[in-house]
Simulated scan of single mutants.
Amino acid sequence: MLPATEMKVPPPKKNRNDPLHIIKTRQQTHGRPATIAGPMVRYSKLPFRQVCRDYDVDIVYTPMMLAREFVRNAQARITDFSTNDADTPTIIQVGVNNTTDLLRFVEMVAPFVDGVGINCGCPIKEQLREGIGCAMIYNEELLVEMVKAVKDKYGDTLRLETKIRIHEHTAPERTLRMCKQLCEVGVDWITVHGRLRTTRSSQPVDLDAIKYIVDGLSDYDVPVVANGDCFTKSDMERIAAFTGAKGVMSARGVLSNPALFAGYDVCPWGCVERFVNYCIEFGGLPFQLAQHHIFCMFESMKLSKDHIRGLMNTRSMPAMLDWLDEHFDLRRPDEAEFGERIEAPMHEL
């Protein structure tokens, strides 16, 4: 496992994939849009990313990392980002509000990832006050400057994405104009979360707004990825067909069910076994995060409140593994049907 410390060590990742090529060609090669697991604060770390790849996810994002902290703090780099040669294609997402920090961040991470995504969609107030996340779509000139600086330096050797929300409904042309400016300075693709800065996730995503941007960028060779309200494979197909997007991203959906793009409407038990195995194999994931991942999967499986309560009452990784073994037939990689079963194999009481 390779912590992202300084540029000189460790050596660059051996296996690299071009996410832009995947997004542009998945419809022709697989008969579907590119499938993407989006960035989630804390949760889209290495073990979870690998589970997603086991279930037809083409591209996976890291959690958002703050450029200023990452660049200045070695402990932040070690804590926030780990990878390995199988972790590809991976896009590292960054929260940043100036070109200098972005260029320093990119220089440090470029050898270890397949692309960098600038977060222009996070609506959290603390980030907005720092000029990060969704604040960037209201600072178009700076955003365009940052994209241009990275692409001028790296060209096609590094893929660069922007993940945006949409401006107010009274100004859809503002969002489109910004996207065109990003295309003109070399952005490789644009992910559009079809909600306003103030729209709650409980409100439906605005697919018309995403379609408006897709149609408006038809003269550019820059694909659009649609984000929002993708919880099943049929959602993915519907969103892509309506918007014309080349890819569909899910975040909340894959958190509960990493296998949704593979056609499972409910999280299969195999996800739990694979996730536990990757946590042990890769190490480094805090227990509370691992516990929360399994909690989300259990909720998708609609397991009983007693099972969920028992899981959440464990206080360490060994205790959680013992509890899982006591209540379920939790198999290891060298055992038959490891990672393949669908129904939760509960022990009879």
Rank of each mutant, 00 (worst) to 15 (best):
D101E: 14
P172C: 10
F105Q: 01
D156T: 15
H167Y: 08
I132F: 12
E141N: 14
D114K: 03
E145D: 13
T90G: 09
L158T: 06
V113F: 06
I91H: 02
F105I: 01
Q93Y: 05
F112P: 01
S82F: 12
D152N: 14
E107Y: 08
I166Q: 06
C120W: 00
L143C: 02
G155T: 07
L158E: 07
I137L: 09
I164M: 12
E168W: 09
V144Q: 04
V150A: 03
A171R: 13
M178D: 04
G95S: 15
A149C: 08
G155Q: 08
K153V: 10
A135C: 10
K125I: 14
E107S: 10
T162I: 14
T175G: 05
H167E: 11
N139T: 07
A135T: 04
T170C: 15
L103C: 11
N98P: 07
F112R: 04
E173D: 11
E141G: 11
E130G: 12
M136D: 02
V94D: 01
I92M: 08
E130H: 11
C179W: 03
L143N: 01
G115I: 01
E140W: 03
G117P: 05
R104F: 05
L128N: 11
P89N: 13
E161A: 15
R104V: 03
K125L: 13
G95C: 07
L128Y: 09
T83A: 14
N98H: 10
A110V: 15
Q127C: 14
V116D: 01
L128R: 15
D114H: 04
L158D: 07
E141A: 14
I91A: 04
T162D: 12
G155H: 09
G115Q: 04
E173G: 13
A149R: 04
T88F: 04
K153E: 12
A135N: 05
I132C: 08
V96R: 00
I118E: 01
P89D: 09
C134W: 02
E140F: 03
P172L: 07
T83F: 07
R104S: 12
V150S: 01
N119I: 02
G133E: 02
G131W: 03
C122E: 05
K148Y: 07
I132Y: 05
R165A: 08
K153H: 15
V109N: 00
I91R: 01
T100L: 14
L103Q: 08
L158W: 05
